[in-house]
Amino acid sequence: MGQRGAESEVEIVVDGQRQRVAPGITVAAALFNLGISALRRSVSGESRGPVCGMGVCFECRVTIDSRPHQRACMVAVVDGMHIHTASDS
């Protein structure tokens, strides 16, 4: 996404931190590019990240704009979006 100009980027808030990311990419891609690998905690407390990338495995669930259990691989980033992951300590 390096070829895109900074002016076309969108600003999202991830675990309380403002981040600028490429427009149109999925939330899973944005978090991957930001180096955030633990998206959710499993029932026994393990960190989990995306597996299938196609909406099947439900391992990429995060909270988006206060809605829990959203699949990060199935949602595109939007300017002003708030995302909460399991990496937030």
Binding site: A28, A30, P50, C52
Partner: peptide, 20 residues
């Protein structure tokens, strides 16, 4: 189950959806 382990198609999908 460690983050960083993903499907082969999963990696492809991540790449196609803007992952670097």
């Amino acid at each position: 189950t460690l983050p960083g382990v993903m499907g082969i198609g999963g990696a492809q999908a991540l790449l196609k959806s803007g992952g670097s």
